[in-house]
């Protein structure tokens, strides 16, 4: 797919997403919002997995920490202030990622996968086994954060449409931010680290600091997703930090095509969509899901992001045009 068709395709999808609440039911609008939130989550992980070469298997920890942060910041009978709760939740997730990053980034390869998982499991048990966040039952968020600024109400997250467009704006903002990051000198260094960290060191790059910055940024953005998820569904459970969630988001990145932001978004849509279809079909939907993932990995190397180019190559008789 050349860049013009790809841009047109992205704009068409975007137009569909923007127009959706006017046509779709609230149920499906909530599902689209869920996809967009998970797309933020998947893009944040792709920064690590696809662009920096850091396969984190504990990314749900930062998602969950921010979700708990907003739940715990919300008083029992009042909403929290959005403009305080949102940055505070993101900062909590980023701070956790920074501290954990100081440890896990000293390891490589399979050990990195294991220690990121271990730290996420520790975070899971903190919420699961202590009364801090309601234990294994989780905690309700009775009021969605209040967006009032000095008496002025720009929007109201209790209005489903307002919340929907807030999520759309958040997704676009994260996409735009990551595009900028990847285009910047910092982003080029991350991609260099994925390709050949040893040579980056010998060229004079303090790769550890770059990886720590990427890990912290990815944690913060995962936190943004966790915050939105908690606000959308109105409750938080330890499952948000579970290794299933870490695995799901890794699958979104792989299905979509690692190292491609639009791919991460497509991967999130595909996973949520497939889950929706398969749970409607059979009790044993996990089995169908597993088979689909195996088939996708086998027959779509490079993920969904690489598929249009492969199809075009077929049509053009084996000549690749990208």
């Amino acid at each position: 797919m050349n860049s013009r068709t790809s841009t047109i395709f992205k704009l068409a999808v975007m137009a569909g997403v923007l127009a959706f609440p006017a046509f779709g039911s609230d149920f499906y609008a909530e599902m689209v919002a869920k996809v967009l939130i998970l797309a933020i989550f998947a893009m944040s992980l792709d920064l690590l997995v696809g662009f920096t070469g850091l396969v984190s298997f504990g990314h749900a920890a930062y998602f969950g920490i921010a979700a708990y942060a907003v739940a715990l910041m919300t008083p029992k009978y009042d909403p929290a202030n959005l403009w305080l709760a949102l940055p505070a939740s993101i900062l909590a997730a980023a701070a956790a990622a920074f501290v954990i990053g100081l440890f896990v980034l000293r390891t490589k390869g399979i050990y990195f996968i294991m220690v990121t998982l271990a730290f996420a499991q520790m975070a899971y048990y903190v919420f699961h086994d202590t009364p801090l966040g309601g234990g294994s039952d989780g905690i309700y968020l009775n009021f969605k954060p209040d967006a009032t600024i000095a008496g002025w109400v720009p929007f109201d997250l209790n209005e489903p449409h307002h919340l929907y467009y807030f999520v759309v704006a958040a997704m676009l903002a994260v996409y735009g931010l990551l595009k900028l990051v990847l285009r910047s000198p910092f982003g080029r260094v991350l991609v260099g680290i994925r390709s050949n960290e040893h040579r980056m060191l010998s060229l004079g790059y303090a790769t550890f600091r770059y990886k720590l910055a990427a890990f912290t940024l990815a944690g913060g953005l995962a936190g943004f997703a966790g915050f939105l998820y908690a606000v959308l569904f109105g409750f938080v459970t330890p499952e948000y930090l579970s290794w299933h969630k870490s695995g799901d988001v890794l699958l979104m990145v792989i299905l979509g095509g690692m190292g491609n932001l639009a791919g991460a978004i497509a991967g999130a849509a595909a996973l949520v969509g497939l889950q929706e279809i398969f749970t409607g079909m059979t009790k044993h939907w996990q089995l169908l899901m597993g088979l689909t993932i195996v088939a996708a990995v086998l027959f779509m190397p490079g993920g969904m992001a690489a598929t249009p180019a492969r199809i075009m190559a077929r049509i053009n008789g084996g000549k690749t045009n990208e």
């Binding site: 990051v181 285009r183 910047s184 000198p185 910092f186 982003g187 080029r188 260094v189 770059y210």
Partner: peptide
Amino acid sequence: KPRPWSLLTNAL
């Protein structure tokens, strides 16, 4: 001149 903080710069 690594300039890691200038996020608005196009590295290329």
